[in-house]
Each structure stands twice: as structure tokens, then as C-alpha cells.
């Protein structure tokens, strides 16, 4: 299902390294990662805790600085940009969902979601339509006028996802976007991710949840700061057997 490359990759890293200095001791978190994500691809990043997954996506989003190596976003070298230039690039090209939602407390849910689209120059009408679509898909239409603080953790998480997608960013970066969600809300989030992916959205997502990773075209596994596996999810076997047998295998 990998989209044929058209133009530069949405995202690329070359020998990317992150070393934290804690108490004078160098602690390598990411140790030479080469990753190329084509436009329209959905990549899940998996691996045990401490394997460098979050550090990697934080660097991709400019939330953390690299120690060495290169980061390219849509054909532009990003890691050498000034902080303000990075911020502009980020606003134009990248949507984020992280474990902490960082919603603006004194704005309504609707305004939180519309803000990124407005900042990037969308018309108010367009921003509103996009917001209505996203909140609708995430079952949050009736929360539009609430303050984020009055929402549950799971609801705030979904608002953060809507906000990240408001812009139709070139790349959606997500770090455990279903971490706080119950089974039903996870299903809504998965449905929306699948939908925007089919519409061409590039997604790079850290997750330990197999249900979420199973949606991806490609899974990258990190271990101890390095990529140990990178490839397509095994093709479905259902056509040969019938869905029931899939369940029986583990039933």
C-alpha cells in the first residue's frame, strides 16, 4: 500500500543521533537512525520503553535538538534552522499529538482546533468546516463550546488530535495518541487516522498498541536507539481462510 514516491520524501533523517548528558555522563538515546518516510505513508514506530522512540519523534518535530545527523522535512534541511525558522516550518508542515495535550485553557475546544488552521492562513469558513468535520468524527461535536479543562483526559486527547489535523499538515507526528483512551474512544481515533491516511495524510506514530500499529503500512522497530526492523506489516491471510480462523488461532 506504500505510495509511490512523488517529489522529496515527507521526512528523512540521516545518521541521526541524540546523546543526553545526565550528571556528566553521556547517555545515548538515538544512535544513528536513517529513516525515510514517503508522502502518504503511515509508519508506526514500536519498541520497548527507553528504546528512543519518543526522542526520535520529538527531534523530528523540533521539540528536541539533535546531537548530530540530519533532519529533512519535505526536501528542506530542518536541523540547521534557527529556532524561529523551525517554528515556522513546524506550523506549516507538521501536526503533533503527544501524550500531553497542551490545549489552551481559556479558549473553547472549537477555537483550540481552529487556531492552527487560522494561523496557517486558512479562511475562517474553511477552518470552521474542518473543525466541524474533525470533532464530528471524534464524537466531540457537543463539546465544541466547552473549555478543555472541563473535558476528561480521553476527550482532551481527541481534541489534541483534531487540532493536529486541523491544518491538514504535511506530516502528522503522534506519540502514543491512544495512550489515555478507553476501547471505544480508541476505535474512534483509529477510524479517523485510517480515514485521513486514505485521504493522503502522512503519519509517523509511536505506539505500543498493536491495534494502532496494525493500521500502518510499515512498522519501524527501535531497540536501544537503533532501527532493528523496518518493513511492511505482513500481508493479510484472511482471503485464504475466512476471518473466523484468525480468531481461532488465539481464541
Amino acid at each position: 500500500m506504500t505510495t509511490a514516491p512523488s517529489g522529496p520524501p515527507a521526512l528523512q533523517t540521516v545518521n541521526l543521533v541524540k546523546i543526553y548528558q545526565t550528571g556528566g555522563l553521556p547517555v545515548p538515546a538515538v544512535r544513528g537512525v536513517d529513516l525515510r518516510v514517503e508522502r502518504g505513508e503511515f509508519v508506526a514506530i514500536m519498541g520497548p520503553s527507553g528504546s528512543g522512540k519518543s526522542t526520535l519523534v520529538h527531534m523530528l518535530g523540533g521539540l528536541d535538538t539533535r546531537t548530530s545527523g540530519e533532519i529533512w522535512i519535505d526536501g528542506r534541511r530542518a536541523d540547521t534552522l534557527s529556532e524561529s525558522a523551525w517554528a515556522i516550518l513546524r506550523r506549516q508542515k507538521i501536526g503533533f499529538v503527544f501524550q500531553f495535550f497542551n490545549l489552551v485553557g481559556n479558549m473553547t475546544v472549537a477555537d483550540n482546533v481552529e487556531l492552527p488552521a487560522l494561523l496557517s492562513g486558512a479562511s475562517p469558513k474553511h477552518a470552521r468546516e474542518r473543525r466541524e468535520y474533525l470533532l464530528g468524527e471524534l464524537n466531540l461535536t457537543d463539546k465544541a463550546d466547552e473549555a478543555p479543562g472541563r473535558l476528561s483526559g480521553g476527550e482532551q486527547q481527541r481534541v489534541a488530535l483534531a487540532r493536529a489535523l486541523a491544518n491538514q499538515p504535511q506530516v502528522l507526528l503522534a506519540d502514543e495518541p491512544t495512550g489515555n483512551l478507553d476501547s471505544r474512544n480508541t476505535r474512534d481515533v483509529l477510524r479517523l487516522l485510517g480515514q485521513v491516511h486514505r485521504q493522503g495524510q502522512t503519519i509517523v506514530m509511536v505506539t505500543h498498541e498493536a491495534r494502532v500499529a496494525g493500521l500502518a503500512d510499515r512498522v519501524v522497530t527501535l531497540l536501544d536507539g537503533q532501527i532493528v526492523d523496518d518493513g511492511a506489516v505482513a500481508p493479510a491471510r484472511r482471503r485464504k481462510q475466512g476471518p473466523g480462523d484468525v480468531v481461532e488461532l488465539h481464541g
Partner: peptide, 25 residues
């Protein structure tokens, strides 16, 4: 062993994808 584990993981994720689809249907 690394290759065995990697292959098995992809296989499980393929099954998971089927299950997600099955649940939707």
C-alpha cells in the same frame, strides 16, 4: 533470533489488522 522475532512481530500485526477489520464488519 532477532530475525525470528521481527518476522513474528510483522505476522502478529498482520493478524491484528485483520481483527480490526473483522471488528468493523
Amino acid at each position: 533470533r532477532m530475525a525470528l522475532i521481527n518476522r513474528q512481530r510483522r505476522h502478529y500485526l498482520g493478524i491484528m489488522r485483520d481483527l480490526v477489520e473483522l471488528a468493523e464488519q
